[in-house]
Design a protein around this nucleic acid. Sequence first.
DNA 1: GCCCCGAATGTTTGCGCTAACGAAACGTGC
DNA 2: GCACGTTTCGTTAGCGCAAACATTCGGGGC
Lengths: 348, 348
Amino acid sequence: MTAATPPPARPRAAVMEDVAALAGVSAMTVSRVLNSPEKVRPQTRARVLAAMRELDYRPNSAARVLATGRSGVLGVVSFDTTLYGPASMLYSIERAARAADYSVNIASLSTLTPRAIEDGVERLRGQSVDGVVIIAPHQSAAEGLRRLPPDFPVVVVGVGDDVPAPVAVVDHRAGAARVVRHLLSLGHQTVWHIAGPTDWIDGSARVDGWRAVLTEHGREVPEPLSGDWSARSGYEQGRRLAADPDVTAVFAANDPMALGLLRALREAGRRVPEEVSVVGFDDVPEAPYFAPPLTSVRQPFGEVGRHAFQLLLERIDGTPPPEGAGFPRRTVEPELVVRESTAAPPGR
Amino acid sequence: MTAATPPPARPRAAVMEDVAALAGVSAMTVSRVLNSPEKVRPQTRARVLAAMRELDYRPNSAARVLATGRSGVLGVVSFDTTLYGPASMLYSIERAARAADYSVNIASLSTLTPRAIEDGVERLRGQSVDGVVIIAPHQSAAEGLRRLPPDFPVVVVGVGDDVPAPVAVVDHRAGAARVVRHLLSLGHQTVWHIAGPTDWIDGSARVDGWRAVLTEHGREVPEPLSGDWSARSGYEQGRRLAADPDVTAVFAANDPMALGLLRALREAGRRVPEEVSVVGFDDVPEAPYFAPPLTSVRQPFGEVGRHAFQLLLERIDGTPPPEGAGFPRRTVEPELVVRESTAAPPGR
DNA sequence: GCCCCGAATGTTTGCGCTAACGAAACGTGC
DNA sequence: GCACGTTTCGTTAGCGCAAACATTCGGGGC
């Protein structure tokens, strides 16, 4: 052949066999160094580790998955990860997962239907994830879940009661209750509410908590107004409330809606908190800088994320599907953060 | 044997061989139905598809990766996905990826150092992703990148000039320039600036654009104040600006800082926009509801995400690493959105 | 000195899929 | 009727790793 020297053909990445050869052992020993180092004589182990470093060896995860059936990857299905809540949840789950050497595969949803959720889970399942966390505090989650095979490990974050899966939730009901008690204790006769979409569990739980406390105190329960979580919807509903002189306290189901509400009140010339008290929910990092700084409810996302991951782990390598017993459920309490947007009603 | 009937041993998930048997073909034909259906006679194909449905067959991705060397997964390395910018980028990349049947694996960073970025990429590489998008508009990105093997497909979003990888960026410089021109055209003598961290490329590009326009117009260039993107830092720097009666126009490098600034001005009794004009950057969904509604710069995240994904695809199955030619670069222009926080300076 | 035991390492096999080749079956043209 | 392309499908051989089962080796007990 007259061919020139073959191009320096980039050496294929080293595989286990290469490491074994360099270290003068068998491939199995290399595998053992990776998976149960204590079973390898320290001296041999050192040789193998040295060989790995020298060849810049990195185990092929696909091969490992194929051989073991476990991938070390978990999926997260979430609606619009641009929103503060879902983004925070995702972030905290990712951190919990990483700490346990799991990696995270995501599937964002642009619509919230049982079908979309099912698709998201199926997409991740196709990637051989070990399990899935669904961040979708929505009716659809429960619905979509029922169509999934019952033995596939799924955990749901922040969803209602009768879900056929383990659940980690913030107690929105209790959070809302705290808001209302705070306002009543300031002397308000009642509290209006700009609710989130009613098909979001978060939203309806907050409505429940709000209504329960008012009822319990024998107060009038105004018709809740409905928003869609956006500042815009808070503004629109806020204009209606601003026009009603009876309104002295409003609980918005999240901070952006509270922001919109604040603007509407300002435009109508109603002063906060002197004339109207306002409370939000979520305690976004910007809440202290609203005009005025917003009283809000802080959600312990980090904690929920850790619980969700923990539940998923248990489901993955735990006992078979808990039969009649029902699924575990971890609830964490949110915290009311009082700032300057709440005060006693006028005339007291 | 006296053993009872074996427990109904949940049938293992169907594999290709099972489908093949049921359809009366070989496994290879099943594989072909999946990967190049046009090479299979329609009639056979139909039989195979029917068998797949019947057995609820789903291809094992690990096996496919092992056999093909391609995973159909891309990694995204990002700093704090709780921030609006990174979250939006992540979301748009995920959408672009999904549209091309790619799935997305994430690695969030809690610190921004070359080391952390390198780790993030390595972690994803260990998961056999086909390539990685780095969302880290930070010096560290460039630095961390140099330590990576040059043939691993990486694309960077929103980072400076001399990066050894394809880049998709928003032209922050141009965005900042637009802000300053807008304020000058309203009659302001000069524009103060609350900058982002200087080690963030976004931040320094915005400073550059701001300074360039002022210089070009022969205006005095005040010393930029430095924030850390948070509303709190905007507030702190804002208190200093509020105390200076010469200040009539301030450009904050992002919206949360602008929010903090607005609060500081309000507390100091300086009215916006009558006495001081304020502009932000990012145009978060809440910006229209700030007090007053904030003039800001909208970033076309969707477009950048699509470009980033596109560049990555080209890098993955495109030509070998472009030698001397330099790396491709896609720049998209942000848009100034004028609202009520800007007006002519007092006394004009 | 012999046997047995456990620790340390090696061999074989298969996880589920696809690239590469090979072999039928079916025309076509002359 | 036969050589020759075209489909269409099957066979073989890995991809890289880890279970499960060998095998070797070095003592300790008697």
